[in-house]
Computed example of a mutant assay.
Amino acid sequence: MSIPSAVDTPVSLEISPDGGIVGRTRRYEKFLGDMAGVYRDAAAWQSSVAERGADELIYWVDDHRYQEGPGALIVGTSTLLPGRIGEEFAVTRGHLHAVADRAELYHCLSGRGVMLMETLDGRSVAIELTPGKAVNVPGHWIHRSVNVGDEPFVTLFCYAADAGQDYEVISAAGGMKNLVVADGDGWMLAPNPDHVGYRQTDAD
């Protein structure tokens, strides 16, 4: 019987009150200036940059990669701050996994958000998440987090370490097929007239 190496040893993760992970492997942050082309209303985005500054933090992701090789997982947290650009709520860039059949699980820790999901062949689903609710994003589904509340939307996620991310699939299609926009005190889906359809991919 082989003895597990240090990287195969079980670890305990501590999630801080702001949604970050103590002892994280990595943190990356996205600022308002990084979000060019993400929102359909480019004029509203430019106005927001001028008023609020390009260095305003929009969201950050902490993850913990504790193992490599087949079967390894990445566990992390995503914290998306509240806000609006025009009629659109604050969003993450969104992605399809580079190894497209890899699934991902999201569990809401705090806040109120929507997981917007679409497939290359045009299916679209939006699931609202509040604390204690989770969503399984199957393989081959593009997905994006949207904060529709007035406090940080924090999710715990888990996916295969070899999945990778394809961020360009959304921009190449003119944005996602649907937008999550304000509707009174709530939200609704609105068709994106700039969407030209997703390119097919050979990723598997």
Rank of each mutant, 00 (worst) to 15 (best):
I74W: 05
L129T: 08
V49P: 05
G164A: 09
A163V: 11
A43L: 14
G132E: 09
T130K: 06
M117E: 03
L80G: 07
V38K: 13
R65Q: 14
R27C: 13
R93T: 04
T155E: 11
A43Y: 06
R26H: 15
A103P: 14
R93V: 03
V148L: 04
S145H: 10
A90M: 15
M35K: 15
Q46P: 01
G94L: 06
A43Q: 15
L96E: 14
E128R: 14
N136D: 14
D55R: 11
Y106S: 06
K30D: 00
V61C: 13
D62K: 04
D121F: 05
S48M: 13
S124M: 11
G139E: 05
T79N: 08
G83R: 00
L109S: 06
V114Q: 07
G69K: 03
R112Q: 14
V135I: 14
S78I: 02
D63H: 15
L57S: 10
K30S: 02
H143L: 03
G164S: 10
P131G: 02
P82I: 13
A126H: 05
Y59S: 07
A126Y: 09
Y59I: 10
A161N: 02
V75D: 00
E56Y: 10
G111H: 07
P70R: 14
Y59P: 05
A42C: 00
G76M: 04
V49W: 10
G149P: 08
G37A: 08
I127Q: 14
Q46L: 13
A90L: 06
A42W: 07
G113K: 00
S48I: 08
